[in-house]
Design a binder for these strands. Structure first.
Lengths: 238, 238
DNA sequence: AGTAATCGTGAAGGCCGTTCACGGAAGTTG
DNA sequence: CAACTTCCGTGAACGGCCTTCACGATTACT
């Protein structure tokens, strides 16, 4: 609803076919430019996006419903990327090994968050409503964690209560958010001690108590794979 | 360092005594006006603060080093308030009952956060550095959680490893942040199910395993006391 | 060819933070 | 008292932000 319907005109008229074909691509290019700014740590403003695209800010209003809508689009874009990375990280480990899958996804989540702090803030930071009103846009998705759990269900022991999954992700979210937001000593982040402690508990929650060594190995593997794809994260095994 | 030293002039000269007396009060009034805006959910801008005080924005620069500095002052102000509330919440329970104290403080923390979302975001939201650059100011305190643990040490079983306290607070932070930031279904927040689940684990971590009923009672008591002081929070015991 | 729709532009308004020269008020000093 | 110094708030101004608007040029359809 927030992005302009690509098949229809502002006033509800059907858009001519020849023109409509080019439009969705432009919305994509706007989001792409926004992601590029995000990646470079630059401020994501309509002007900056427009400049990146070689036009002026008002032009974006033909495709996007303002800065808040751009925030939602970016947030959605980042979210599917995260889910993709979590899924990919868990895939090497069989469905018969839920603890390994969970640890792999959690490790990937932390690695991604530390590498893409601006994106993490956008999606997992403060959402709108009751805020100080100062934020230009803020994570709009209703219940990111709810959606995350739905799309990447960390398996419990067997048919563990569904809230168990949510609680596990909540614990993981807490530790990662603290690290990304800078609320714990940097030394603690670099050492990864806090994360490893949480990892042990989450592993235990997934029914792999006492299997710490194997899960630590899984975590290392995920980090090694991330490093291969050009990403880097301070090794927690230091 | 960030606020102008009240005893000294901008250029380092000693300020006349008669004048200096009025000045610290003015810095306080600025912070007070900022907190009022925060409380009302209005945007905390220099202009708004100045208007609240009956002057113009440039006037504030005589006392405050800009918007970022105001953010730091506000953050600090809120932080000591939180520590005070946590301490007060834990006080009724004796030092021989660490689990009760921890649960009481945690319940108070959640209640405060849900009642003062803007303040929570300011202090416990994204800190500066590597951000999208859009935020006018963001929690500046180095390691809020580190400081919180230092000032409000949740006691472990006996001499549990110090990281245990940090981990417990991290778990609590995660669940509260998820709720305040709107990343879980509102129904789940209202029911308090997630928080209660976390509370059980935190209680167990503090060495009171299997004592769930008593700790739930402690939680209820804290909420009742909060309600008496004019605050309200959706009762988790619904 | 003529008409209609699309789309980018510059100008403008309103908000923000910030800097600056100015002038009035208050204090200190002779 | 008078003269001087210091403080301190102001309005103007600059740049940046989001957003709206009328306009003109380009494009597509008939």
């Amino acid at each position: 609803m927030n992005p302009v319907d690509p098949a229809r005109d502002r006033r509800g008229r059907a858009a001519p076919a020849g023109r409509a074909r080019g439009r969705p691509a432009t919305v994509e290019s706007i989001v792409g430019a926004g992601r590029a700014l995000l990646r470079q740590g630059r401020a994501v403003t309509l002007r900056a996006v427009a400049t990146e695209l070689g036009c002026t800010a008002p032009a974006l209003y033909r495709y996007i419903d303002g800065a808040a809508a751009l925030g939602e689009l970016l947030s959605e874009d980042v979210f599917v990327e995260v889910v993709g990375e979590l899924t990919a990280a868990g895939e090497p480990y069989g469905e018969d090994d839920p603890a390994a899958r969970l640890v792999a996804a959690a490790t990937a989540f932390r690695g991604w968050a530390l590498d893409n702090r601006a994106e993490f803030r956008l999606v997992f930071g403060a959402a709108r409503g009751g805020g100080s009103g100062a934020e230009p846009f803020a994570g709009p998705l209703g219940g990111v964690l709810t959606r995350l759990v739905r799309q990447w269900p960390p398996p419990g022991p067997e048919g563990a209560e569904p809230d168990g999954a949510l609680a596990a992700w909540a614990q993981l979210y807490g530790i990662v958010a603290l690290e990304v937001f800078g609320h714990v000593r940097p030394r603690l982040i670099r050492s990864g001690a806090l994360f490893r402690a949480v990892m042990r508990e989450v592993g235990a929650r997934a029914g792999a108590a006492g299997d710490g060594d194997r899960l630590a190995e899984v975590s290392r593997e995920v980090l090694a794979r991330r490093a291969l794809t050009g990403r880097a994260v301070p090794a927690p095994g230091g």
